[in-house]
Every structure is written in C-alpha cells, then in structure tokens.
C-alpha cells in the first residue's frame, strides 16, 4: 500500500510536469507577443525589446522553460505580466470561489443523482425507470451555457427568486452550482442505478429477502450501503471533470474563479497566469484521479493496488 502510494505520487509529479511542458509549448506557439501587449500603444520598438529582455522572453525557449520549471521547484509560479501580482496570490484569491462552486456542484449532483438512481433501480424496467433515465440522458446532454442562461432568466430575472449572478452568499451559489451539476447528476443517476441493480441481484440480498427480512430494510441497510460505494469513488474523478469545466459556468454567472482568470489571461496572453491556472486545474484533476484510484480498491475488493 505505501509502496503503491509512493509510486502513484511520483507518477503524479511526472504528469504535472508533462502538463507544464505541454502548456508551455502551446502558450509559446500563440502568434502574439506578450511584451507588445504590455508595452502599450505609445511604445517604441526599443521599449518592447527592453520589456522582452526584462521578462526573459528574448532567451531561447529551452532556457525560458528551464527557468520556469526551476521556479516551480522552488514553489515560485512567477508574476502576472499584466497585474504584476505574484501568481500564487492571484490563484489563492480565486481558488475559494472555484472550490465553492465545485463543492456546490458535487452536492447537487449527489442530491439529485443518487435518489433518482435508487428510484430507477427499484423500478427497473418499469415506466418510472424509463422516465428517470430519460431525465438522466437530458442532463448528460444539456449544454451548460444555455442551461445557465435559462436558469438565470427563469429564477433570477422573471421571478427574482435568486441573485442574477455574482458571488458571495449561499443564494449566489445555487444557480451556478445547479448548472454545473446537471450533467453530473445524470451521470451519477446512471451509475447508482447500475450499482443498485447489481447489488439487489447479489446473493446475500436475495438470501436476506428469502429469509423474510422486510424488503425496505434490506434495501436501506444492505443494498444501499454497498451500491453507494462506487458512487463515492466516482467523486474523485468528478472533481477533476468539474474543475476542468468551470470556465463556462463562471463566465455565464460572472463567478470570480479560476476559470474566469484563465479566460481573461488567454485574452491578453498573460502567459504566467495561463500556466498557473492550467497547472492548478491539472493538480486538482490528478488529485481527484488519485483519490478515485485509492478509494476503488476499498469499495471493490476485486481491484487491488497495482
């Protein structure tokens, strides 16, 4: 177990380094000059050249890369070209908003996904099951940005029940989190349904019912407990998926998180910020995958750490 953990951590570091490398190459391929973006409109060619050398952008690519990775090793993510702020400060100021949104998203996913999945499993093959599954499909297939706008229109504009976007109170969180959750809720419902049907067919459950235990008791006490475990393991993967997809929801709801920061940085080619946001998001994706991998063997004894 410890050995496994160590090798997985090493792998994680390797993957993050890979992400940094790919992101570095891509941002440097973009046909625009960050020094020019900084220099302003009045700048002479010399001014731009001066800024380029100040930022080390006149050095060969491999040296810039070396410097960036060297900085990373010391925990230094660099400074924003535009705002001059330390990237770590910048990321930390945005992270709470994104974490809140992600947590809210997972909450709603589970809130809708699990009961719907159980319902469908208990009525497997019958009309209710079909209806739930259609809803699950709709959720999985809904375009987040359109859904977000429609929720805004209905709940915030027409009926003024919730704030029209922005950040701060729990009320602000409801609509963005709900939008983020719709896709995942459909997905959880499907997984929950599958796991539940499988457990209900398992021998011990059949035995339990055969021995005359009340069906409700069996369902609640045994089947549910076993079926919910794969869902818990899935949360790890989900963290990564949600973190990677917040750009859209944050943009629709003016949510001041990592996604918005990344999007604005791409617009003005603030390379250190782009790198920082990509790295942070990748970190959460990798962390989520790692958690999932660690939890799976706990819930499914057939899988071993390998």
């Amino acid at each position: 177990m410890l050995g496994y953990l160590a090798s997985r951590l090493a792998q994680t570091v390797f993957v993050l380094l890979g992400v940094v490398t790919v992101a570095f190459l891509i941002t440097n391929l973009i046909p625009a000059d960050p020094a020019r973006m900084l220099a302003g409109r009045q700048a002479s060619e010399e001014t731009v050249a001066g800024i380029r050398s100040q930022l080390g952008l006149d050095k060969p690519l491999y040296m810039q890369y070396g410097r960036y990775v060297g900085g990373l090793a010391r925990g230094d993510l660099g400074r924003s070209y535009q705002q001059r702020t330390d990237i770590r400060t910048l990321l930390l100021s945005r992270l709470p908003a994104t974490l809140q949104l992600t947590a809210g998203g997972i909450f709603f996913e589970l809130l809708f996904g699990i009961p719907l999945g159980i319902l469908a499993a208990l009525y497997a093959g019958r009309a209710l099951d079909k209806v739930v599954m259609v809803f699950a499909f709709l959720g999985v297939s809904a375009p987040q940005f359109a859904l977000g706008l429609i929720l805004l229109y209905v709940f915030a504009y027409r009926f003024a029940l919730l704030p029209l976007g922005g950040y701060g109170t729990p009320q602000h969180l409801i609509l963005p989190a709900l939008t983020l959750a719709v896709t995942g809720a459909g997905w959880y419902a499907r997984v929950m349904r599958g796991a539940m049907i499988e457990t209900l067919q398992a021998d011990y459950i059949r035995t339990g019912t055969a021995k005359g235990l009340a069906r409700r008791r069996v369902v609640v006490k045994h089947a549910l407990r076993n079926a919910v475990l794969p869902v818990i393991a899935m949360i790890g993967l989900d963290i990564g998926l949600l973190m990677g997809g917040v750009v859209v929801v944050e943009s629709v709801f003016a949510w001041p998180g990592i996604g918005q920061l990344a999007w604005q940085a791409i617009q003005v080619l603030d390379i250190p910020v782009i790198m920082g946001t990509v790295l942070l998001t990748a970190f959460f994706i990798v962390l989520g995958n790692l958690l999932a991998d660690l939890v799976y063997p706990l819930v499914d004894p057939r899988i071993r750490y390998g």
Binding site: L38, A39, G40, Q42, A43, T47, I51, Q54
Partner: peptide
C-alpha cells in the same frame, strides 16, 4: 526599463531619456 511601464514611450522626448533607457 525595469519598471516595464506601458507609458515609457510618452516620455522619451525628454532630453537624455533615451540615454537613460
């Protein structure tokens, strides 16, 4: 140049500014 001011170019008309830069 170390300040990387986007306004630098406005003030290059001051005598000796270019030499300083």
């Amino acid at each position: 140049p170390a300040t990387r001011s986007p306004g630098q170019g406005f003030y290059l008309g001051i005598e000796g500014a270019q030499a300083f830069v």
